[in-house]
Simulated scan of single mutants.
Amino acid sequence: MDFLIEKISAVNDLILQGKGLEAFENYYHDNVVTQDNDDEVFAGKEINRKRKEAFFDAITEFRCAKPLKVAVGEKTTMVEWQFDFTHQDLGCKKFTQVAVQEWQDGKIIKEKFYYGL
């Protein structure tokens, strides 16, 4: 489990430095699958990279990203985040989100986000 603590800490540190795309490139598996709540599933690194790039590019004002809690289990990590930003399509958003990551081969193979907006 120490291995996963180190990995998720590195991911979180990059996000806090404004390097979310670098975290994605370094710590996400080529076959990564992501999902927001019970919405559509997105499979593969390329499509998820494009989604992340589009999301980050549309942030017009960034005020806060703060990890509140981190949990580590068998091949799984969870991070509760607090976010506060303005997005050109979504408007002003201040919310808490839980991200659950499943790991394979030292990289995130599946990530699901739970939040209410």
Rank of each mutant, 00 (worst) to 15 (best):
85 F>Q: 04
113 F>P: 06
27 Y>R: 02
79 V>S: 10
2 D>V: 09
78 M>E: 13
46 E>Y: 04
39 D>T: 08
90 L>T: 02
79 V>R: 08
44 G>F: 03
58 A>V: 05
27 Y>N: 02
44 G>L: 01
75 K>W: 01
12 N>D: 09
100 V>D: 02
9 S>N: 11
58 A>H: 11
76 T>P: 00
36 D>Y: 08
25 E>P: 01
67 P>F: 04
85 F>H: 09
8 I>P: 02
87 H>C: 07
46 E>G: 01
96 T>S: 13
6 E>S: 11
35 Q>L: 06
11 V>D: 01
102 E>C: 06
114 Y>M: 07
47 I>R: 07
36 D>H: 12
89 D>F: 13
53 E>I: 15
52 K>C: 09
63 R>F: 07
14 L>A: 09
99 A>Q: 10
108 I>Q: 05
14 L>G: 05
95 F>L: 13
101 Q>A: 14
9 S>W: 04
89 D>G: 15
52 K>R: 15
40 E>T: 12
97 Q>Y: 08
1 M>G: 09
27 Y>C: 03
36 D>I: 12
6 E>G: 03
43 A>H: 10
9 S>Y: 05
66 K>H: 09
15 I>Y: 14
69 K>P: 00
73 G>Y: 00
51 R>T: 12
66 K>Q: 14
58 A>G: 06
4 L>W: 00
92 C>E: 15
101 Q>V: 00
63 R>K: 14
117 L>V: 13
50 K>C: 01
47 I>F: 04
116 G>Q: 14
